[in-house]
Design a protein around this nucleic acid. Structure first.
Lengths: 250, 250
DNA sequence: AATACCGCTTGATGCAAATCAAGGTGATTA
DNA sequence: TAATCACCTTGATTTGCATCAAGCGGTATT
């Protein structure tokens, strides 16, 4: 019933906050799973959701090959999902920010197809999939919403496929910066100033580039006065030319 | 109620076969949507499915931006799904063989996120999504199966992401040949001899390579006696060394 | 039968990003 | 205070694939 944490072989205990966190009062509920649900539907959803102690940086939420039980919503912090190739290299398949859902790739085989690890201290809501399924049959709007979430994951992956196969290093990094900017503003955070939660290596492993190339692109962008980069602190100085560099027509 | 075919602005009429095709007697039903359904559940599914005149080669099933109404199951022939980038280049996101489902990327926005076009004469079953949703609420095994299908699409996309970002031209082409081989054998066709339904350009646009590179890889494989290539006819001569070249550890 | 066109192959050349290498900075530990 | 380590940056060199270019065989067009 608790989240299996394979990292240290231990289990996370459900946490008891002094105040009770629930979907109804969560400030992410307009962008997260409860989106498009009625108040009393949200209460029912809330019943099946389990909250637990936050994950520490670099702790795993689940690992490739683990038995699939639940999908997860990010409440705070950031996680990366990744696969390890036979020769030990790492392909990052996604970064997950608050309000976003991960773990859906485990449904097809009842086994997680990728690993997920916290890039910084992160809290997640665990949604046991069997409960979600049951609830979905009696709550059509939840069923629909979950279909849409999975579809969104598919289109996001297809975006990445196109990016990897057709775009230059400059375009890839610019696109990622714009994506993070957009996702920040959906959470009412600054679209132009933020702290990257992931390392250069992670960015490279996501975008199909080496660290060195990522670093060089940042330097180039800085020289062109599009971006101010101070280690992980990013300030977008000229979002229009950044869009031009990303060159995605969106 | 009929399939919108944007190609010639016309509409495909439901076709009346001399014998009635249905999910119950379809020889693909063990690998297609009916998988894991009881006989009378299959009958219900059958009621919502619409069959129509086959698509001719290069005819579109739907286009990026079209209003999303249905997902489709391939009954015969092959289709490709693709997106067109701003600068007019084409990213193929998938090939769909008989028994496989396409169109699920349209669910998230009620708009098709990619286009689908027949690579050869192809027949599809149209599954209106709203009906599928309704049926899913009263038929939990269908709901589960459809969740699984979407999840499978996600894992397939993630495979492709890894392939594009981490593997060489040789590895990519070898992987595709193995994938087609596997999918053929699931349909009880030869795993070692088949005809490629797609052009070299399509293969290149799928694998993030140019035609020339694809052609060179085929020549190389042939010189190494792994494959016999005669235009679109493929014979796998040494599947083990092909696996070695693909180098996916699977 | 000549022509054009399309899909495929093969060769020569160029280039963007990988690889190899070295050094810098800040955080943690001894 | 020094030492270690993780992470990032910058430079020099290499390389795998793209690009450019040409030619071939099959099919459709006139």
């Amino acid at each position: 019933m608790t989240i299996q944490v394979t990292e240290h072989g231990g289990e996370l205990q459900p946490c008891s906050h002094s105040y009770q966190v629930n979907c109804g009062n969560c400030r992410l509920n307009s962008i997260c799973l409860p989106l498009a649900l009625e108040a009393d539907d949200i209460a029912q959803l809330d019943n099946i959701i389990q909250r637990s102690k936050p994950l520490q940086k670099s702790q795993h939420l689940y690992r490739e090959g683990d038995n699939f039980q639940s999908v997860f919503a990010v409440r705070s912090g950031t996680l990366k999902a990744y696969k390890t190739t036979d020769d030990g290299r790492e392909q990052v398949t996604g970064f997950y920010f608050p309000g976003e859902i991960l773990g859906m790739d485990g449904i097809s085989n009842n086994t997680h197809a990728s690993s997920a690890k916290a890039l910084e201290t992160a809290a997640v809501c665990e949604i046991p999939f069997s409960s979600l399924e049951k609830l979905s049959t009696i709550m059509p709007s939840l069923q629909r919403h979950f279909f849409q979430l999975m579809s969104r994951e598919i289109t996001a992956d297809q975006q990445l496929i196109t990016l990897l196969s057709k775009n230059s290093a400059d375009e890839r990094v610019a696109s990622l910066m714009l994506s993070i900017s957009t996702r920040n503003s959906r959470r009412k955070l600054s679209a132009t100033q933020f702290r990257l939660p992931m390392s250069r290596v992670d960015i490279g492993n996501y975008l199909g580039l080496t660290v060195e190339t990522v670093s060089r692109v940042f330097s180039r962008m800085q020289k062109m006065d599009m971006l101010r980069v101070d280690n992980k602190e990013i300030e977008i100085l000229d979002i229009e030319s950044l869009r031009g560099m990303a060159n995605l027509g969106s």
